[in-house]
Design a binder for these strands. Structure first.
Lengths: 194, 194
DNA sequence: TGAATGACAGATATTGATTTTTGTCATTCA
DNA sequence: TGAATGACAAAAATCAATATCTGTCATTCA
């Protein structure tokens, strides 16, 4: 028995039963082993749950990391990165709302894992903005600060708590408008007196 | 018996028992009347709940309306309006987290009322941005579009789903950073090619 | 000898019988 | 005569008995 096989099984059982009704015994039954076996590989149900969440979130951050590592124009790359994040999340909620609810419920419990994931995403954003600063496409001075601001300002388009709003057909137009304001802010980068 | 007295009682009972355990019978008992009396003034428990939500939300939109109606500089007014919205929400969650949870739970059920409230807030933002456009402080062209974008981009600082993040002491710095980017966007208003 | 088992205690969840609540309305009250 | 009552049916919530689950560990297996 490998941790990977257990994670595969846990994911499948979660998919079938949902987060509330999934038990360690269910996962063990699915693998036709005793539930003690699972406790040999994971310290607790919470640890198993965190490992599942980590794998899920990795599937989001991996394709984004590719965009962050590309060479092209920073503004275009930043736009594509943000849209990709939005599209990845939205596709999940539209394809299978129940599975998305499962994701979200688990993510809400696995806070440390989610914090690490967000840290990773902000690092990727910082990377893109830094490359924009070095080519003088962006005039902002602190790439990490700017990355955090961009991530905050787009929360409505990627945070699962806003998933219901993603049904609104205007959501793409709303994103475009926010993107426009942020892009101008990054490009100009000046501070205005109040 | 007036609708107002019933709303006062409903609020008090909600404050004491929470949204899950509050019944129409509890509200009637508090007023020392039969529960039939309440159904004379409100068509259903949902209608009573919506009326309570409406009154609560009005207490948020009223002080903001004053700022929106002031004369001063648009940028300063817009900043003050957004901070006031943030402060009003945050004060509620810090002062009495349980009562805030009650607010939030009720708001989640009273969706139409919340939609109307958000519409009102966006109208106020539009008003401020229009005044900024007329004094040439802002160069954006569509005030209503810009208002929606500003509201979206600041969701993390006023949407109750993000209340847990408001404990982070960096939240004010994060807001300042987002505000900076948005302000530059509004003031410059130009579109940049990708 | 490292991995899996299954019995076990304490904690948690399920179930179905019972109580409470919602919403209506014919009747009473002032 | 408009407002309040209280009895009622149907729907929903509660509660306590019962079952299941989590996490441990001495024992078995290969």
């Amino acid at each position: 028995m490998t941790p990977e096989r257990i994670l595969d099984a846990a994911e499948e059982v979660l998919r079938r039963y949902g987060p509330a009704k999934t038990t360690v015994v269910d996962v063990a039954r699915f693998l036709e082993v005793s539930h003690g076996t699972i406790y040999r590989h994971f310290a607790s149900k919470a640890a198993l749950r965190d490992a599942v969440a980590e794998r899920w979130l990795h599937r989001v951050s991996l394709p984004l990391a590719e965009i962050a590592a590309e060479q092209g124009a920073a503004a275009e790359r930043l736009h594509r990165w943000l849209r990709q994040l939005m599209v990845l999340k939205r596709q999940k909620v539209l394809d299978d709302p129940e599975l998305f609810a499962t994701y979200s419920a688990i993510a809400e419990e696995a806070r440390e894992v989610v914090q690490a994931h967000i840290g990773e995403l902000v690092t990727q954003l910082t990377q893109i903005i830094e490359s924009g600063i070095s080519t003088q496409a962006f005039k902002v001075t602190d790439a990490h600060q700017a990355a955090k601001a961009v991530f905050s300002a787009t929360a409505r388009f990627h945070h699962p708590a806003h998933a219901l709003e993603w049904r609104d057909p205007n959501i793409d137009a709303d994103f475009a408008q926010v993107w426009q304001l942020l892009l101008v802010g990054l490009v100009v980068g000046e501070t205005f007196k109040q």
